[in-house]
Amino acid sequence: MSEGSLYLAVVPAYNESATIVSVIEALRRHAPTFDLLVIDDGSSDDTHALADGAGAQVLRLPFNVGIGGAVQTGFVYAREHGYDFVAQVDGDGQHDSMELERLVATMEAEAVDVVCGSRFLTDDYRYPAPISRRAGIHIFAFLLSRLVGGRVSDPTSGFRLYNRRAIELFAREYPHDYPEVEAVLMLHHHRLRMLEIPVKMYTRGGGSSSISTGKSAYYMLKVLLALFVGLGRSRPSELGSDRAVATAQPGA
């Protein structure tokens, strides 16, 4: 870990009272350099009180704004408070906070803007999601890989580490529903680099997914529309201009 850098772990949580305490405790144990920020997305249970009691900073949204808006709150907070790195860790206990250090190490070793933990880069992954969900993930993975011209194996993974440039971008603008998929395309459009590393993930520890099976077809359509329309947007270059220079003169 770089000296003096500020790390923030953003934990979006919607009715996660069953798991939120263990998620925060694991983060405090395995990722002590990270400050912890829980975004309670209008939960009707006592998620916020539990998170507060476990020693996290809590932002309580007055009503449910959806996962995209909740996570973006974390980016805005990070920007306002001058954090250098933001990790997104889901509040349902799917993500293993022990892997967070590997995300940080990868970020430091490879000059990338986002490091994403992928379930599908190893052969021995066990991710017993319903077949419809997995099919959706693979369709998005297929489309995104072609759109960004590089392999994207797990576009719905919310286990990510972002640097300052990515924080700035997403604090300004972050997709709404199923945001991780569209965020990959946004990164590509703004010429930010993303790298995936294999991570283990658990099945949900409790609560229920924000995406029920009935709604997933609807979300799927919406994200497909977003991807399709996103193709028509021009690629602004000012954010990535230094990167463009760097790749043009690799010896310099």
Partner: peptide, 19 residues
């Protein structure tokens, strides 16, 4: 409708029924 979505004047959520 597609152009409005592209310019972010219309959210996808509200564009689907129009489409």
């Amino acid at each position: 409708v597609l152009e409005m979505v592209r310019r972010r004047r219309l959210m996808e959520r509200y564009a689907l029924l129009w489409l």
